[in-house]
């Protein structure tokens, strides 16, 4: 018995020595991939489908930000029409200086960045509107894949009516509760613009891209910046509500490239569902 204790380290070694996975690529490939294409989701929901909101905090002078945009792009390819991105340009790395002349920051975007305490980008939020859940682009794929398995809790339909003559836009957001909620919820509606060409810093030589296409650039909040209360008494299954918003587009925005993004949050700031629709 006295010597029993000497067995402890050996027991430990035995346990640990078995713990290694060595993976090998499929025959004839240099890529360590699963042979089968992985994206296969149930598309049987007809009332509404679950979409995932990704808020991407970014900047034109941020060298690692194109990497995050690439992750977004990849996700959009693999899950078509399921990803709802918003790119909020901010922090010092979005400040135009030298040859970087385009300012994509907004007062409202800066308010979000200040409130969330963001000082290093790229960073983002996947299906949350709360700084506790800020995550790097490296985890987005995993979060999106997980969240897309969830059943949709809300249906969101957006109808845009744009008037070319005075640049006015009416946004109708139809909400359908697909479950029972005993809490009030908030609806957040933003306007984003695609295909804005700017100079963008990158982490590959020569360190910048002169004509870079910025997508999903946050331009303005259509609802209150932090959201409007909906279903203030809670909601029951199939209960609906419609919210109407009116705004006028800035002359410098290209209405052909503008989209409305709407998402609905519970009181722990989790995004229950999101959707987007082009203005024209």
């Amino acid at each position: 018995m006295k010597h029993l204790k000497y067995l402890i380290p050996f027991a430990l070694v035995m346990f640990i020595l078995n713990s290694c996975d060595k993976v090998t690529p499929p025959d004839g490939s240099l890529f360590y991939i699963n042979d089968t294409v992985s994206a296969s989701l149930n598309d049987t929901q007809n009332i509404a489908e679950k979409k995932v909101l990704i808020i991407d905090f970014t900047g034109i002078r941020c060298t690692n930000c194109p990497g995050a945009h690439e992750v977004l792009h990849q996700l959009e390819n693999i899950y078509p029409d399921k990803i709802i991105p918003i790119a909020i340009h901010g922090t010092l790395l979005a400040y135009p200086t030298g040859e970087y002349i385009t300012d994509l920051r907004t007062i409202q975007g800066n308010e979000i960045i200040d409130e969330f305490g963001i000082n290093a980008i790229p960073i983002g939020l996947v299906d949350y509107f709360d700084k506790t859940y800020l995550s790097s682009e490296a985890t987005w794929s995993d979060e999106v894949t997980t969240n897309l398995q969830e059943a949709p809790l809300f249906g969101i339909e957006i109808e845009n009516t744009f008037n070319n003559t005075d640049n006015s836009l009416e946004v109708l957001v139809d909400l359908t509760s697909l479950s029972n909620f005993e809490q009030s919820l908030s609806l957040i509606v933003y306007l984003v613009e695609d295909s804005i060409i700017t100079r963008q810093a990158t982490n590959v030589s020569p360190g910048y891209i002169e004509e870079y296409e910025q997508m999903n650039v946050f331009r303005t909040a259509v609802s209150n910046l932090w959201g409007d209360t909906v279903f203030s008494e809670g909601s029951s299954e199939n209960q609906t509500d419609t919210k109407t918003f009116n705004i006028t587009l800035d002359n410098t925005w290209n209405a052909n490239n503008c989209k409305i993004v709407a998402f609905i949050c519970d009181n722990s700031n989790k995004v229950l569902n999101a959707n987007s629709a082009k203005i024209k």
């Binding site: 993976v23 890529f31 991939i33 699963n34 294409v37 992985s38 994206a39 794929s141 995993d142």
Partner: peptide
């Protein structure tokens, strides 16, 4: 999950 696009097909990594 991590994805990679090879020859226009997206795969997940091992």
């Amino acid at each position: 999950s991590q994805f990679i696009t090879v020859n226009d097909t997206t795969y997940s990594l091992l």
